[in-house]
């Protein structure tokens, strides 16, 4: 794998392979010695143009458990905000001998630009770009679902036959986009539920069903309900009237939680707005995978880094 830029261009075999390698990584994380020598001598740069401590430390843990050297390059408040371009930064990292660059950027497509520009030879791993994609988040979500459903027998399995409902700000969510492509590639049926203002105007190419009514969607008995974080500032742009109305219509509150089958998997990519898109009871219920998602994030990112940095680096 030369780069990991999106889930849209992952085929089924590659996706399953990534999840299976993540299973192997997860196995090693049960041991007393969690560190593997695999990427000894490799340099992984975490290039973050947006604050995200959670994602950065997950990648950092993943790289370090594979014995890579990790350089954290937080571009916020550094030379970058003083007018240094992405190109200059990339060329600096190239000169430092980076083997992989994990990039988080507020502009959609920035990782792809980095990968195709010729500024740098390193493998590029998209850690979230604008409102485009966040492939490792979708992979860890898929991993978490597969593990809940298939347990120890997860290896090699797809998500055939599972119904996943994703609820919230689809328009601005890179997590939603990456999950739509990945989960459907893996065989799941995906339903999106959101206020009409927070759905892209034209979704004809999306392999999903779109609805506006959360209660209708939950009544159909989905296997997985994934709640997305809602940003407070969307209110100011008139996407919805206020948080109370949002919560009442599109929040997973206690009433809706109790109407779910107890086997339903409740997910959230974090960080959560408790009481807004998800109630405290829902977040903490045994149906919730919120903490597993964090743990699995490290295994999935180890797998991604491994596949990015091993093998033939030609091409």
């Amino acid at each position: 794998m030369r780069h990991l830029l999106s889930t849209r261009d992952l085929d089924l075999d590659t996706a399953i392979r990534l999840l299976d390698v993540a299973e192997d990584m997860a196995d090693t994380q049960q041991r007393e010695v969690k560190k593997l020598p695999t990427l000894r001598g490799k340099t992984v740069v975490n290039l973050f143009f947006e604050d995200s401590t959670r994602t950065r430390i997950s990648f950092e843990a993943a790289a370090k458990r594979l014995s890579a050297d990790v350089i954290n390059f937080s571009a916020k408040g550094s030379s970058v905000s003083k007018g240094e371009s992405l190109k200059d930064t990339a060329q600096t990292l190239q000169a430092m001998g980076a083997d992989a660059v994990v990039i988080r950027h507020p502009a959609s497509g920035a990782p792809q630009t980095l990968a195709t520009s010729g500024w740098i030879d390193a493998g590029i791993l998209n850690a979230g770009d604008g409102t485009h994609e966040h492939p490792t988040q979708a992979l860890l979500d898929a991993f978490t679902i597969r593990k809940r459903v298939h347990g120890a027998g997860s290896r090699g399995k797809s998500l055939d036959g599972l119904a996943v409902t994703i609820v919230g700000d689809i328009l601005h969510s890179r997590v939603a986009r990456s999950n739509v492509w990945l989960l459907t590639t893996l065989g799941a049926t995906v339903t999106l539920v959101a206020p009409p203002t927070l759905v892209p105007v034209d979704t004809r190419n999306w392999p999903v069903t779109i609805g506006y009514d959360l209660d209708d969607a939950l009544a159909s008995g989905p296997d997985v309900v994934m709640m997305l974080r809602i940003q407070g500032e969307r209110m100011r742009d008139a996407f919805f009237p206020n948080s109370r109305e949002y919560s009442r219509r599109w929040g997973l509150d206690d009433g809706r939680l109790h109407r779910l089958e107890p086997t339903t998997i409740v997910m959230h990519p974090g960080p959560m707005n408790r009481g807004l898109e998800i109630s405290a009871a829902a977040a903490d219920s045994p149906m919730s995978t919120v903490r597993e998602q964090v743990t699995n994030g490290v295994s999935v990112r180890m797998a991604a880094l491994y596949l990015l940095l091993s093998g033939d680096r030609e091409n």
Partner: peptide
Amino acid sequence: LDVTMYRDDLAKHPTRTPSPT
């Protein structure tokens, strides 16, 4: 015992998928 993750020649071959230990 899978040894893939312990190899010192990762970059010299096509990517090996680890097997379970």
